[in-house]
Nucleic acid binder design. Structure first.
Lengths: 195, 195
DNA sequence: GATTGAACTGAACGAATGTTCAGATATGAC
DNA sequence: GTCATATCTGAACATTCGTTCAGTTCAATC
């Protein structure tokens, strides 16, 4: 149902996702009720079940879609062959991509606890895949002596944590432009890996 | 009540806090019920209300106590006069202190959303005070030309995010000892600030 | 203009929530 | 041994939760 041609509204599905992301990011998954989400879309709670079998699946879909979009966007990103160039591309991409969808990022980072075990595994796999992208860049750079790193995996975790932190304080129109933030972070990362 | 001399059990209060921290860290504040906390302590739900006026206050107390302990512990920490020495002391202190109480850290970082506005402001103030410690170290180092930093506030956010990230992956008895992790992180930070 | 089928309502369901409180229990003081 | 007091139980409360579903609405099709 609601999955065929969609005579009038193939519009409600995306609206639910957007409203759910916003509410869950603000108040947390467990604290948000189906009635709140429905009200934000302008619909009764029962109508949501035309678009999702249950609340848990709604959360899972939001997180999975976000992470798949993240991986696909990185694949499509232009990046050089030089490890330092790739690391700069990754750093700037990470900041930009995450700043563009703060709600989805917040949910994907904070609601892992609320996933049922089987869903958790699937999301963890996607997260690991993204970490693997950075690990590969660092290991290649270390091999080519472009970077000086005692441990690529640890450096990858440190860099991702650092980059992700931008979302917690950056405000559009604030003291620093996004381009300036990207440059400063890239400089810190470049020095941290000894490039 | 329960706040006087405490003839038999001045022991239940701390036990409630520990159990609550553990459960909230695992499942999130909104997902944890007073009955679950009570069961973990071996008591009926009603008994909890001898120790806290309500669930919200319990959360607030957990977060405030953690942050006050954090600030007090830093005050008591031995630290040199040299900016680089201080930054190393801060980096190592942050990792060590946070690894020692992962549940409290997790709750303090993740449950800000579930604080009522007035409680949120109080906790935010404590967090800002801790950030201020690092900002001061960085600014002093930049002034003395010990560090090369375009922006101390931004660098402080980046460093704290990076250090806090350790809690998400570090496991006792894992591939790297805590001392080794501390050293590697300090090295990355040292290079990142140009010291 | 009758028929179809997706989109949605509105009311209901059992279960679970935070919180209260009268009473039971146990301890230490006198 | 009596009393006072701290601790806790067990049942109850009003409310809210996720979810279901019979029925209504309405645009598109024939």
């Amino acid at each position: 149902m609601a999955r065929k041609t969609g005579s009038h509204s193939q519009i409600t599905g995306p609206r639910i996702r957007k409203a759910a992301l916003k509410l869950i990011a603000r108040h947390g998954f467990a604290a948000v009720t189906m009635r709140q989400i429905a009200a934000a879309v302008g619909v009764q709670a029962g109508a949501l079940y035309l678009y999702t079998p249950d609340k848990q699946t709604l959360l899972f879909d939001l997180m999975r879609d976000h992470l798949e979009e993240l991986l696909a966007a990185w694949e499509a990103e232009p990046k050089g062959d030089d490890p330092a160039e790739q690391l700069e591309a990754f750093s700037r991409f990470h900041i930009r991509f995450h700043l563009e969808r703060p709600d989805a990022v917040f949910v994907a980072n904070m609601e892992l606890r609320n996933l049922e075990p089987e869903n958790f595994v699937a999301i963890e796999d996607l997260r690991k895949r993204y970490e693997g992208v950075l690990v590969a860049i660092l290991e290649r750079g270390a091999l080519h002596r472009d970077f000086t790193l005692p441990d690529s995996r640890l450096a990858a975790m440190a860099i991702i944590a650092m980059l992700s932190g931008v979302n917690t304080w950056y405000r559009e129109g604030g003291r620093l432009s996004r381009e300036r933030v990207e440059r400063i972070y890239w400089n810190m990362i470049r020095r941290a890996v000894g490039a």
